[in-house]
Design a protein around this nucleic acid. Structure first.
Length: 156
DNA sequence: GCCAACGTTGGC
DNA sequence: GCCAACGTTGGC
C-alpha cells in the first residue's frame, strides 16, 4: 500500500463549510473545474488526509481536517444543465471532470488564519502561501500538514 | 468593491 | 504557437 498523502481543499464557507461537513459526516467534492486541481484529485487515495480551507472568508484559513473516503469518479454535476457546475463539454459518455468524496475528521477550535500561516517560517514553500496561488486542490507535504495541525490545536 | 494573478479561449 | 481579451479566484 502506498504511503498516505496529504492535501488541501479550498471551499468558500458560504458554499460549504467545515460545520456542514461535521453535520453531514461526508460529502461529494463536486465543482472542481480546473485541470491541475482535477489531476490532483485523481491522485487521491482512500485514507489520505485533507486540510479543509475556508476561502473568501473572514478570516480565510484552515478550519479542520477531512479524509478521502471515495477515490475519483466522474462529476455528474457537469452534465446537469440545472447545476451551477454545468459544463457542456462534459457528458456521461465522455466525462471531463472528476470528484472525490471526503469525510469529516476534525474541526479546529478556531479557524487558523492565513496571516498566522504566513508568519510561520516552517511553512515556507507551502503552495497555499505562494503569491497569487489559486489552486483549490493542492498537495501538502507531511511536514507542513503536521505543522498546520499543531498550530491549529495550540491555544492562541 | 478593488484588483492582482491566473487559466482559458479564440483569432491570427 | 503567440497573445489579447475575457472570466474567475480570492485576499484585502
Amino acid at each position: 500500500m502506498a504511503a498516505k498523502r496529504y492535501w488541501l481543499l479550498k471551499s468558500e464557507p458560504e458554499t460549504y463549510s467545515i460545520e456542514q461537513l461535521e453535520q453531514d459526516g461526508a460529502t461529494s467534492w463536486e465543482g472542481v473545474r480546473n485541470y491541475q486541481a482535477r489531476n490532483f484529485m485523481r491522485e487521491m487515495k482512500k485514507g489520505d488526509r485533507v486540510l479543509f480551507y475556508h476561502s473568501n472568508a473572514n478570516p480565510p484559513g484552515v478550519a479542520g481536517i477531512a479524509e478521502v473516503v471515495r477515490e475519483a469518479y466522474p462529476d455528474s454535476f457537469a452534465w446537469d444543465p440545472k447545476s451551477h457546475y454545468f459544463d457542456e463539454g462534459s457528458s456521461p459518455e465522455d466525462p471531463r471532470w472528476d470528484m472525490v468524496d471526503v469525510g469529516f475528521v476534525e474541526r479546529f477550535p478556531e479557524v487558523l488564519p492565513l496571516p498566522v500561516l504566513r508568519e510561520d517560517p516552517s511553512l515556507e514553500g507551502m503552495e497555499l502561501l505562494r503569491k497569487g496561488s489559486r489552486l483549490s486542490v493542492q498537495p501538502v507535504s507531511k511536514e507542513h500538514f503536521d505543522r498546520v495541525v499543531k498550530l491549529a490545536r495550540k491555544p492562541r
